[in-house]
Simulated assay, not measured.
Amino acid sequence: MIIRRERAEDVDAIYPLVAKAFYGHPHSDGSEPAIIKRLRKAGALSLALVAEEYDMPVGHVAFSPVGFADGTEGWYGVGPLAVHPDYQGKGIGTALMLGGLELLRDTGANGAILVGDPGFYHRFGFRSEPQITHMGVPAENLLALPFEGELPKGEVAFHKAFFGEI
């Protein structure tokens, strides 16, 4: 398996891959491929990585800028993170996350934030931080990983592509 930056020739394969990865997932509304399309269209897909096996994408992770009520900058939202069902449970999601977080750190990012399962994301250092909120998201599922500087305070604003806008 190879973890690498997404390339133009991957784009058409990514949407069905993400759709299959989230199909039937209890916390998915099926919008994940559309979120990636809207992030790409808005120029807000700051970093996208692909897991490749046998010359085909089998996993994908997206990173996009976020804002905070206190004006903190340099943070990125993680997601969607997707692995094709036939390849789940083989460490591909972990490899994508570790690779993406390393690249974010290398570019001087201050931190990463996501909405997800603490059981999966705690292994990377993500934690619920009481001073960071997002309307409608339970505190235990809003997870932050600071790299540098002060921890932001207040409401986090994910890119509007996550909400069907663009």
Rank of each mutant, 00 (worst) to 15 (best):
D86E: 15
P33C: 07
S128Q: 10
T133C: 11
R123Q: 14
D117I: 04
I36T: 03
T72L: 11
P80A: 08
Q131R: 15
Y87A: 12
A95R: 03
G100A: 01
N110C: 09
A82K: 04
F120K: 06
P57R: 06
Y76F: 13
A69H: 13
K41V: 09
P85S: 10
K41M: 11
M56D: 12
D70G: 06
P152E: 00
H84S: 10
L103M: 14
A82L: 07
M135F: 14
Y54P: 00
P33S: 05
I132T: 05
G89A: 06
D70L: 09
Y76L: 04
E32A: 03
T94W: 10
E102G: 07
G125D: 02
G67E: 14
P118T: 04
V50F: 08
T72V: 13
G91Q: 07
V137L: 13
T133A: 12
G154E: 09
T94E: 08
V50M: 08
P130Q: 09
G59S: 03
G108Y: 01
A48D: 04
H27Q: 15
T107N: 07
V61T: 00
G30K: 10
P57E: 06
G77H: 00
F120C: 05
D70A: 13
A139W: 11
S64V: 08
L151E: 06
F158K: 04
A44S: 10
H27D: 15
R105C: 03
P138V: 03
E73T: 15
A44G: 13
G43S: 09
V83P: 04
S28M: 10
A42G: 10
L39I: 13
Q131F: 11
L104T: 01
L103S: 02
G67S: 15
L49S: 02
L39Y: 06
A157I: 13
P146Q: 05
A44T: 02
G43M: 13
K37I: 09
D86C: 08
L47C: 05
S31T: 14
A109D: 05
D86F: 13
G116A: 05
Q131P: 06
G154T: 02
G136S: 10
E140M: 04
V78C: 08
G99P: 05
Q88G: 11
D106C: 05
G71I: 15
L98M: 09
I92Q: 01
K153L: 09
R127K: 15
R123H: 13
D55T: 12
Y54T: 15
L151Y: 06
H84F: 07
F120P: 15
L151C: 13
P26R: 09
P57V: 10
H60C: 11
S64K: 08
L49Q: 00
P146W: 00
I92A: 02
A112R: 03
A48I: 07
V115R: 08
V66L: 04
E52M: 12
G91F: 06
T133L: 12
Y87Q: 11
P138H: 01
V58E: 12
E150C: 14
K153F: 05
N110W: 00
E129G: 06
P152R: 00
G93R: 12
A157D: 08
V78R: 02
I92C: 02
L103K: 10
E148A: 06
R123P: 14
H84Y: 03
S64G: 04
R40H: 12
T94M: 13
G108H: 02
